Simulated assay, not measured.
Amino acid sequence: MTKAAIKLVSFATLGLLAASTTATIANADGATYNSTGTITYQASTAVTPPVDPSDPTTPVTPTNPDGSDLTPDQAGTAGPLSIDFASSFDFGTQDITSSNMTYYAAAQKLSDGSTRDNYVQVTDNRGTLTGWSLSVEQGDFETSAGDVLKGAQITLGDGAIASASETPADVSAATTTLTPGTASGTILGATDGNGAGTNLLNFGDADGTTNSDTAVSLFVPGSSTKLAQTYTADLTWTLSDTPAQ
């Protein structure tokens, strides 16, 4: 560095010191004052709408297997920890047979006519990130007169988590075979520190469309008595605030 450059730097430093001294003197009679910023949270009581299994940032309107709109009793549960939607499974109309048979559920229909993987959706807006667990229980397949399709079991296959959350659910079951009258283990859940926001378990793949017609199946033994009737089974989905393991 040249001598001229050294002088310029020195002068600049002196100028800053002089300005600082002047500012200190000018503010000698000033004052300080404190104000505050506040925010208050309350637990949400809203119902989270279903979202697209192929794009969890986009709301969609699922329909029943026959294409009809969901009824009011099919709306999601309210509150900060909620089950927003679960598909109903349509295994079609089949010929009576004495052979063991496996049938596959049709894909989930949307109101725009497109289809997606069948899925279940959970939202955690508690803000605590303390985890949760979802299980499901299948009832017997019965006719309106109470005739039971003995041994009929649903299998939920190819389970894959889909979420737009920064801390998504981190526990899922790839395959779950249901036993009528017995709750499953955790099929979707979050350990402590995970599971905030909206999380889906797609029965197919995380992209929501891969195995739409084959992931959910129903096994019926050939030995089961079958009538030319419609058999229906209830599926009860249960969400608890117990962290998944």
Rank of each mutant, 00 (worst) to 15 (best):
T242Q: 14
D192N: 12
T238E: 13
G189P: 06
P180N: 09
L149Q: 12
T232H: 02
V171E: 12
A228I: 04
T176M: 00
L235T: 04
L239Y: 14
T167F: 12
T238C: 03
S224P: 03
N199C: 11
S240F: 06
T179M: 04
T182M: 02
A233D: 09
A173I: 03
A173H: 04
L156V: 06
T242R: 04
T238P: 05
D207Y: 05
A233Q: 05
T236Q: 11
G197D: 12
E166P: 01
D170F: 03
A190K: 01
G189W: 10
A233V: 01
L156F: 15
S217Y: 05
I187R: 03
D241F: 01
I154E: 11
A145Y: 06
G189V: 08
N199Y: 11
S172C: 02
E142T: 15
P243K: 04
V148K: 13
L149A: 07
G151D: 10
T179I: 14
S172L: 04
N199M: 09
S240V: 09
N211E: 02
A215Y: 00
L218T: 12
E142H: 00
T179F: 08
T191E: 14
L218Q: 10
T186C: 04
W237I: 05
G189K: 00
W237V: 08
G181Y: 11
Q229K: 09
P168R: 01
V216N: 05
K226Q: 15
A244V: 08
T179S: 13
S212A: 15
A183L: 09
T242F: 00
A233E: 10
T198A: 11
G193P: 13
A206I: 07
P168L: 09
N199E: 13
T155Q: 12
P180F: 14
P168Q: 11
A228Y: 02
L178T: 02
N194A: 14
P243L: 05
G222H: 12
F203T: 02
Q153F: 00
P168D: 14
N211P: 00
S172I: 00
L201I: 15
T238V: 08
S217I: 02
A160K: 12
D158C: 00
D213N: 15
A169Y: 11
T236S: 13
T177P: 09
T242N: 12
S163M: 08
T209F: 02
T182L: 09
D147E: 12
T186W: 07
T177Q: 15
G151N: 07
S212H: 01
L227K: 13
G159Q: 05
D147L: 04
V171K: 14
S217L: 09
N211Q: 11
K226I: 05
G185F: 10
S217A: 11
G208N: 12
D207S: 15
N194Y: 09
G208F: 10
